[in-house]
């Protein structure tokens, strides 16, 4: 059923690269069907430790579904998910998080009625002792440029501040794999640049790999090591942003529409 022409694929199937130990995330034949709709179509996907991978593709390409399979929000119809060399396909979400997978949702998902301090406490109390709460909260907020808002109720933050806070909260768990679903959607150019700076700083300081869903190609161009294009649930092509942008087939299905 796939539209993807095998000859277009620039990345070989997983087995051919042999060495898997440096891979933080790998999926094999990952498939998700909702009734007759194939949302994820036999996806073989791999991310190296410390890599920043962007997932792009038209609306309905199955990007968010793919992330939900990785987090355990959805159960796959077939296939397996390996994280850090371990099969996590059957693990519930919270156990995957315990092992180092963290995520920022597409719509900023904070605790709107709680203060910024209490928002940070929710993830923080899983990894810190009560004596460390205040210091580590301030450390996190400083890093994400939110220290002045420590007593603000989260609902009163600007959209950009909410995006930063949610990334900050997800990062307090010290993940090895961070999933970001459209971190700059709806942000101004300045706010977008701020998020890009933030990601670069995080990568410089920590051993963390990112998988980022994004539509903003300039943003992708700035942050991505490699780009995977999803189309109709399947991997259409993979490569550097230059390779992907130069691909006429990608332009036809996706980039042609305005980018």
């Amino acid at each position: 059923m796939s539209v993807s022409d095998p000859t277009i694929r620039t990345t070989p199937a997983v087995e051919e690269t042999g060495e898997t130990s440096s891979r933080i995330l790998q999926t094999r034949g990952l498939r998700k069907q909702f009734g007759g709709l194939v949302a994820t179509d036999d996806v073989d996907f791999a991310v190296e430790e410390g890599e920043l991978r962007c997932l792009i593709g038209p609306n309905g390409a199955g990007k968010s579904t793919f992330l939900k399979l990785v987090t355990g929000r959805h159960e796959p119809t077939a296939g397996s998910i390996y994280y850090d060399g371990m099969d996590v396909t059957d693990l519930p979400t919270h156990e995957r998080v315990d092992r180092g997978i963290s995520m920022k949702f597409q719509v900023p998902s904070l605790y709107p009625e709680l203060s910024v301090r209490d928002n940070v406490r929710i993830p923080l109390q899983r990894v810190a002792t009560p004596g460390e709460f205040e210091a580590r909260t301030r450390e996190t907020l400083e890093r994400f440029n939110l220290l002045e808002e420590i007593d603000t109720v989260a609902a009163n933050l600007s959209h950009g501040q909410q995006q930063r806070l949610e990334i900050g909260m997800a990062m307090t768990l010290e993940p090895k794999l961070m999933l970001l679903d459209e971190p700059v959607a709806g942000l101004s150019i300045e706010e977008t640049a701020e998020i890009a700076d933030l990601l670069e700083a995080l990568r410089a300081e920590e051993e963390v790999a990112f998988v980022v869903i994004e539509h903003d190609i300039d943003f992708v161009e700035r942050i991505a090591d490699r780009v995977t294009v999803l189309h109709q649930g399947a991997i259409f092509t993979e490569g550097t942003i230059e390779e992907v942008k130069a691909d006429p087939a990608v332009r036809r299905i996706y980039l042609g529409e305005g980018a």
């Binding site: 919270h94 949702f105 993830p123 109390q125």
Partner: peptide
């Protein structure tokens, strides 16, 4: 208590912070 309140406010978000909601 914080975990309870987090679960009340947003169950999916809380699960994704590693809580067994």
């Amino acid at each position: 208590g914080y975990a309870m309140i987090a679960t009340r406010e947003d169950e999916d978000r809380t699960e994704m912070f590693g809580y067994d909601t």
